[in-house]
């Protein structure tokens, strides 16, 4: 994947993951493994900020499906923020948003998660 990277911000019990660029091949698997690494460290609150994600296809959708599944297995909390409508439509269509909280801005998600145990 030439056009994909991940930025991370973590504090205490919360991590913000920012996929950047094209989420359209197996390189995006790193998102799933990154998420799992935080779960294993005991950080169960995850925000995914989509503001820099430019493109999503079925392979990318599969990766996010995997992240949601991991969140369910680890009994974590997953929030999506800053999603473009076209991507939100895909997540809705696939039933992914049934298992995550969607916020407009990252800060809203962080504040929401801070209030959660």
């Amino acid at each position: 994947m030439n056009n994909f990277s991940i930025a991370l911000k973590s504090s205490n019990d919360l991590v913000v993951i920012m996929p950047k660029g094209y989420v359209n091949d197996l390189g995006a698997e790193r998102l799933e493994s990154t998420c799992e690494q935080f779960f294993n460290k005991g950080i169960r609150k995850v925000v995914i900020n989509f503001s820099d994600m430019q493109y999503l296809n079925s392979i990318g959708a599969s990766v996010f499906t995997g992240m949601v599944q991991k969140t369910l297995e680890y009994k974590g909390l997953l929030c999506f923020t800053n999603i473009k409508k076209i991507h939100l439509d895909v997540f809705n269509m696939l039933g992914i948003t049934k298992h995550v909280k969607v916020f407009k801005e990252e800060l809203e998600a962080i504040n929401f998660l801070k209030g959660k145990k």
């Binding site: 079925s58 392979i59 499906t65 949601v68």
Partner: peptide, 19 residues
């Protein structure tokens, strides 16, 4: 092997199947 794995990801992405 990579081809098969990617193809499986396409299918799982299309139908939101995590496993």
């Amino acid at each position: 092997d990579e081809k098969m794995k990617t193809a499986l990801y396409v299918v799982t992405g299309m139908f939101s199947v995590p496993k």
